[in-house]
Design a protein around this nucleic acid. Structure first.
Lengths: 199, 199
DNA sequence: ACCTGAACACCGTTCAAGT
DNA sequence: ACCTGAACACCGTTCAAGT
């Protein structure tokens, strides 16, 4: 169980002051794009809006994936913490519930996190570390939940990830209201349990 | 209840023979792109691979949405038929199950259908007609299922659409096996029912 | 009718030149 | 160290010219 809270998220340790400022501006502009519903993050546009040359974007973020991971770092760390807390919950049911609720909240709030958790490749070391910490904690939550009969036999940590991303997808489709989040979370939680009518 | 089976799907009624041939080639090339996992359908590329000028693509399909809807027409018609059959099922449970199973099968087989059902806008009249036919049939399935206690109170036809698209999203994430489809369908079916542990 | 492809605007990415 | 922006390749879309 590695502590994650002390990872200096969005680390920009030895950067010249102008470099650090540019990096922040780029992250702000990119974040605004994501929140505005555009996940494409055109590098030219980001550069222009941040008032820097294109080359500067590529200097700070060699790929769009790297930019995404930088944006996702903060919410990602929160989810890892929540997962660790869930793994330490006395009640397996409560642990599972809190894990899924926290993850779904973060996923629907921060588009970057969903993009990173969906992507097969990883650009930053920090992301790898958080993925590993998350995997460990979720593994614990899952095995405790399964022992309590809260999960079908086939369901592993990766199924939870995929289904959560699926529910998130459903929630962000046009015309959805934020109130649906709790409802769909319940659908998932109840559906994950050992078979009722189905199979 | 409008009959859909006699809709001449992908109608190309009064087209010159070369026009019809080009249209088919374009659809084939585009379909191949989708099946290869690229949903972007670059018009230039489609044109080149089909051996026609770009303008020809735009002549047949004024927007990419129109191209998508043409590709989706066949699977869409199948789903409408399945929904109508499900609405006529004696058992509400069996009707709901068959509807979701048929829809999920079509959605995971044909990327174009998912794209069309996710899109807020409609380009072709034919699509509007099928949407309306689908809505009617699904409405019947849903009200019968709800009366049988198979659906939570909050769940309407549109929630079914969104959640199915969400499950489809989960299924197409990298590293998924086709065997997961039935499992996730069960998760959805069981989760949709009146509350168990959750809420 | 239908088709072609040049033309223009735009985005991704690199890299030589600047400070 | 870091930044700039020209340069090249590519894709979206239109439209004048062809058959």
């Amino acid at each position: 169980m590695t502590a994650v809270s002390d990872l200096s998220v969005n680390a920009s340790p030895d950067l010249r002051s102008d470099g650090a400022r540019n990096r922040e501006r780029l992250l702000e502009v990119a974040q605004a794009h994501l929140l505005a519903g555009d996940p494409t993050l055109p590098m030219h546009v980001i550069a222009r809006e941040a008032g820097v040359g294109v080359g500067t974007v590529y200097r700070h973020f060699p790929t769009r994936q790297a930019l995404l991971e930088a944006l996702a770092a903060k919410p990602f760390a929160l989810v890892v913490q929540a997962a660790q807390a869930a793994a330490a919950e006395p009640s397996p049911a409560e642990g599972l519930r809190r894990l899924l609720a926290a993850a779904l909240e973060a996923l629907t709030t921060d588009p970057s996190l969903a993009l990173v958790l969906e992507s097969p490749e990883v650009a930053c070391l920090e992301t790898t570390q958080m993925l590993s910490g998350l995997g460990e904690a979720v593994g614990t939550v899952v095995s405790r939940a399964r022992a309590a009969g809260l999960l079908r036999d086939q369901m592993g940590p990766d199924d939870l990830r995929k289904l959560l991303l699926g529910v998130r997808h459903a929630l962000v489709l046009p015309g959805g209201s934020p109130a649906l989040r709790d409802t769909y979370l319940c659908v998932l939680l109840d559906g994950l349990r050992q078979p009722g009518l189905c199979k």
